[in-house]
Design a protein around this nucleic acid. Structure first.
Lengths: 328, 328
DNA sequence: TTGAAAGCGCTAACAG
DNA sequence: CTGTTAGCGCTTTCAA
């Protein structure tokens, strides 16, 4: 299993040129004569050689590895982003080392250390553990996505507009009470602007923002229970009114829809729901959920490009409303 | 950004020992005297040194990187498996390079080549592109999960029992017609045994197996349409009968439940549903879906251990029925 | 217990 | 256009 060993040296001998020339065949092919290129290519084929990324990385100091750190994997937005990243990264021969981190700073820093020790080209950061200041100390290109910003590359959705679009839609649909359900935030998070935008748009009308951290992991008993209680209190409080509910993500919206259906609410008639992310979950609910699209493919594309030419600044990706079956 | 450079050499100088000794500090610490160990440790702290995995990999020929190749990411089973793998792998300092592959053999082989060039410890294979024979040629430790087997390490669920448990449950619940819905298979796939087990258990009673490849990607229009048609035909064919439906995975079961609800079927009364995987999706459906548990954490654990000490053979993980709300 | 020296496989000046 | 010569940062005989 380790008798392979076919290296640049072997193909150099086989084709009667020097090591360097073979190396150049891969890195600066235009410096070589057609004849040598052919010879080398032939040897490569014959010996079934393929490059050694470890040696190359050691020599150059840079690999094509990229780190991604998610808070968790069980959210449509994350899965889809990873999918896009992997897909689009293939063209540039990027390989992604994936971690999850939602606990301690020490753990996250150690993961980042490991990543650095593999000489990653950059780290795409989605976890919320580190502060902007701490991130700035990292000494490795960081691309943060939907995180509070600092002096590094950020990719954020136009959350303000997203929230505003949701509010406007719900108003246009003649909802009578406007609710926002969120699992918690910090005011410096980009996603906080969703709330601001939403509240701005429903200003002057009956509205309420409900924050409940139990909703953080949507696939838990605790989240179901919390959501059930929320719906109950809403029904009690706003009896007879048509509710317009904007959720901070599709998973929460999905959970909400489930509770509404269980409790016999009629979609569109009694309640309208808008989620955020336009991720697959929003499509496989009973009533596919109207959602604010973050343009995940574009986010991935920007991330990939930023890896190539790193510029520390904020990239804002537009938000658009995707009309489905939970709004008129 | 590249002024870092703190290497084994620096800490050797600082602590007045040789390179070799410092190296041994990490690899064979018990060969060192307590005094030198202390000196070295102090230097490490002071210089804030951390090891270079690339150099170490080049020198030893083995890294702590592990490849995973999924057919896609949008299936609860995959997400949860990845989650478990990443989590459990952390203890052994494994880092996972994640790919998706569902297209051509060339692409998959090239991914595997890249993985090899990073000197991965092994590759966890879930994609269906390569045949067992081709996998055997790979010259890298392969751990296949729920794939047709060959002479390499395999981790498979006890699919036969899983299918049988589903059938028996549906019978016990007094269903009158027994259906299996599947998105396609090959007879040498482990998951084919689900069908065999199920069919065995409902032998002699009215039953039918429905195969439809359009169900492969559950988050697509095409899948919804297909499922809708399937339910229609079932209703037409078995009017008035209580249907017992076993699906090949939770995502399909979820889709099925959605169509049943849309068409006004009453859960438990008109229809019972059992999925496979016991993945998060099964829990956030309107009626949490009874499902066959594959014990994903155990699968992950076996995978991790197999990486450590590779033994080419089949590991069979037990299947158990998880009773939820789509069965009595 | 410790050190010197020879690589691991490739790249990158520098020279021709 | 092509070759020589040092490394990249760490591990690993071999010898002391």
């Amino acid at each position: 299993m380790t008798i392979d060993k076919t290296g640049i040296k072997d193909i150099a001998e086989k084709s009667g040129v020097s090591l360097t020339t073979v190396s150049r065949y891969f890195n600066k092919p235009n410096l070589l004569s057609l004849k040598t290129k052919d010879k080398i290519q032939a040897a490569i084929q014959e010996l079934n050689y393929s490059q050694d990324n470890v040696a190359r990385t050691l020599a150059t100091g840079k690999s094509n590895l990229v780190g991604i750190i998610f808070p968790s994997l069980h959210l449509g937005f994350y899965t889809e982003l990873m999918n896009q990243l992997i897909q689009q990264g293939k063209e540039k021969h990027y390989s992604f080392i994936v971690y999850t981190s939602r606990d301690t700073k020490e753990e996250e820093l150690s993961l980042i250390d490991t990543l650095k020790s593999y000489r990653v080209k950059g780290i795409i950061l989605l976890s919320h553990i580190l502060s902007p200041e701490e991130i700035e100390q990292l000494e490795v290109p960081i691309i943060s996505i939907e995180r509070a910003g600092g002096n590094y590359c950020q990719i954020n959705n136009d959350n303000y507009t997203g929230g505003k679009l949701a509010g406007e839609k719900l108003i246009a649909d003649n909802c009578e009470v406007f609710l926002h359900i969120n699992n918690g935030y910090y005011e410096n998070w980009p996603s906080f602007k969703r709330i601001v935008g939403f509240e701005f748009s429903v200003k002057g009308m009956p509205h309420e923002t409900i924050i409940n951290e139990d909703l953080t992991d949507p696939y838990s008993k605790i989240a179901s229970t919390a959501m059930s209680a929320i719906v109950d209190s809403l029904l009690e409080k706003y009896v007879g009114k048509k509710l317009g509910i904007f959720c901070s993500n599709d998973d929460i919206a999905n959970m909400l829809q489930r509770e509404c259906i269980r409790k016999g609410l009629k979609m569109l008639e009694d309640v309208e729901i808008i989620g955020y992310d336009n991720s697959p979950v929003s499509d496989y609910a009973i009533y596919p959920i109207t959602s604010i699209d973050q343009n995940i493919p574009l986010m991935a594309q920007i991330a990939i490009n930023s890896l190539e030419s790193y510029i520390p600044h904020e990239n804002v990706v537009p938000a658009t409303l995707m009309d489905k079956s939970t709004t008129v």
